[in-house]
Simulated scan of single mutants.
Amino acid sequence: MSLITKHEANTKGRDFFVGDIHGQYALLMEAMARVEFDKTRDRLFSVGDLIDRGSESFECLSLAFEPWFYGVRGNHEMLAYDALNEGAGQAWDLWQINGGSWVYLHGVHEVRTILNAALEHQPYAREVEVEGKHIGMVHAEPPHDWHLLQLEDHSAGLESLVWGRKRIRQMDTTLVANIDAVVVGHTILEQPETLGNVHYIDTGAFCTGRLTMIDAREVLS
């Protein structure tokens, strides 16, 4: 699978970005209803972490197969992948500590099957054309130059895409080169934050009840 998937402009409807869902399927449905999301015209881009810490994780993971839903891999998808494909051991314990207990509601085999299939629809990055500009999306931290994601040897930077927090810890406002804006999640904030051209939209839905969903045009305003 390519690191990045690119999307042409949506000429029929609107595009939205949503923060870490973490098994809060009902919250997502409420957020979509508030903006009168039209599944036949609109598109929803998810920054990853569909699963864990919420009992509706299976339903959220199933979103990966919807034609209007476009996610990227989060660290929780990768924790689950390691645990389910390596079996019992350190990877399993790490996943359980980080909210993987929902697996027991459905069974290991069923969850492994749907997770492995869902990951085929979740690249590490996406790029969306909006009103003639381009918005990138990764789960945690983009590279300093967006074009690096198109290099075959950028696999060394995958951990930062999924786990990185260096930029936000340093409150780094340096612009990511060769992209107009980037949307990320991963780090829970009181409210959405922008550093340079990077927009952080994880507001901790599983613990605060607040799931941030924004119109793509707001990212460029």
Rank of each mutant, 00 (worst) to 15 (best):
L119A: 08
D82A: 15
H147M: 10
G136C: 10
R53C: 02
R169C: 01
G23L: 04
R169A: 00
L27P: 05
V108G: 00
A9G: 06
F65P: 10
G164H: 04
T173D: 10
V162Y: 00
T113P: 00
E59M: 09
Y70C: 08
R43V: 10
T40C: 07
E159Y: 08
T174I: 05
G136W: 08
G54H: 05
S46H: 13
S55R: 09
R14E: 11
L151H: 04
G99I: 02
G71E: 05
I51S: 04
I214W: 05
R217L: 12
L61Y: 03
W95P: 08
D93N: 15
H144A: 12
E120T: 05
R43Y: 10
H199K: 11
E30S: 13
A80N: 08
G19R: 01
A216D: 09
K39Y: 13
A31F: 00
P192G: 07
S101G: 09
R126L: 07
I214T: 11
I201Q: 03
R165K: 13
T187M: 02
R112A: 15
G164Y: 01
I135K: 11
F65K: 14
G196H: 10
E86F: 00
A64H: 01
S160Q: 14
E59S: 14
E86R: 15
I51F: 02
T212Y: 11
Y200D: 01
K39M: 09
W95T: 07
Y124Q: 01
I21S: 03
E141M: 10
P192M: 12
V184F: 12
V111N: 06
W68A: 14
E190L: 14
A177W: 00
V176M: 09
H144M: 12
W146L: 02
G107P: 08
K6T: 09
F69D: 01
H144T: 13
Q191D: 11
I188A: 06
Q90L: 10
V219W: 04
D180C: 06
D145V: 13
A177G: 03
N178W: 04
H76S: 07
D93Q: 15
K133R: 15
A118H: 03
A216F: 05
S160R: 13
